[in-house]
Amino acid sequence: MSCPPFPFLSVLPLATSTVASLFKIQLFSDTLQRLILARGNFSLGSFQHANFADLALDLPTSIEGSVVKRQAEYLAGRYLARLSMQQSGLFNPVPPQLGIGMLRAPAWPEIVTGSITHHQYSACAVVLTQPLAIDNFVGIDTELWLTSQQAREIAKSIHNTDELHVLVSAGFTSEQATTLLFSAKEALFKAICPFIGEYFGFDAAQLEACYMFECNTMITGRSGWLQLQLTANWVATRAPQQKYRCWFNCRQFDVLTLVCSNAVDTQWLDIISEDYRYSDSRFYNHPPLAG
């Protein structure tokens, strides 16, 4: 039995693909079927150009001329997005093809909003079954755990020392903390970029707190949420919210993060509060500021 990445999700029947390059596909949904998540693995060694035709997926010119890795991850993301949209029951007979829209993000049909992510061998797509709005948006990201060298090279561009302290105090190594914050801020960007309309940096948001489920006992398998606050005024004035909850799920090789609107989050918190406990000792925030 597959384990849902977030406690407000439950497992749906397994899905399959007709091509060897896509496998271990899993589907999940919340109890209201407002959010549907599909994830799976893809293989560069098994990928073939003909997989697009086999799965009846469009191959844009910009992707056709790219490297094999880009083609394989694009195929995986679009296929998982189609599975998620099909599961919603909103499309008859089949969902439309996803184009490439603003800031290179997927162009979703107007009746849903969604997000796609992938790393070296895994992809994930998530769909909210209502149109994009200030109370209905979503962003998802997955990242392989950074090595020590990779983390050192990018850490200063991802977070400040206070943000790092929050996660190290929670039991993460500095490399894991940098990875988690990189992923969380990527998910936040995907969630609100339709409102902002242009790129913004990692310093536009700051981690305020880490809140983990009490039952977690080790880094691999830990889950909970991060509290993020927008700090760049020009981003905050366009954004639908000022603070964001970013759900996270840690696995052995990667981390998955999810940012949704408060209206969606509130429903999930009400649902999981009966089954999951929290403790003050599991709440980590900034140390007092000097002065």
Results as ranks from 00 to 15, higher is better:
T178K: 00
A151V: 05
L146S: 04
P131I: 02
A123L: 14
E153D: 15
Q130G: 05
V166D: 09
S122H: 15
F182C: 02
A205H: 04
K190I: 11
Y121F: 05
G171Q: 10
E153T: 06
S148V: 14
A177Q: 01
F200D: 06
L167V: 04
A170N: 12
T129F: 00
G171R: 11
E175F: 02
F182H: 02
Q149G: 03
P194W: 07
A191V: 13
V166S: 02
D141T: 15
E186S: 07
L167A: 02
F172M: 13
E143W: 03
F137P: 03
Y121N: 04
C210A: 10
T129R: 06
C193A: 15
T161W: 08
L146H: 03
N136T: 13
V126S: 05
L180E: 03
F137N: 04
C193K: 05
Q176R: 10
V168R: 13
K185W: 01
A151L: 09
T129A: 13
G197P: 07
N160H: 09
Y199T: 13
A170Y: 09
A205W: 05
C124W: 01
V138N: 10
L207T: 15
F202W: 06
C124I: 15
K190S: 06
D141I: 13
S122G: 14
L181A: 00
T161G: 02
F137Y: 15
E186L: 10
A191G: 14
T161F: 13
D203Y: 07
L188K: 04
Q150W: 03
F200G: 06
L146I: 11
V126A: 11
I140E: 00
D135W: 07
G201T: 08
D162P: 02
K185F: 02
F189R: 12
V168K: 11
E198R: 09
I154K: 08
T178D: 00
A170C: 14
A170K: 05
P131V: 03
K185L: 03
L128K: 05
E163P: 12
L180D: 03
A184I: 09
S148T: 15
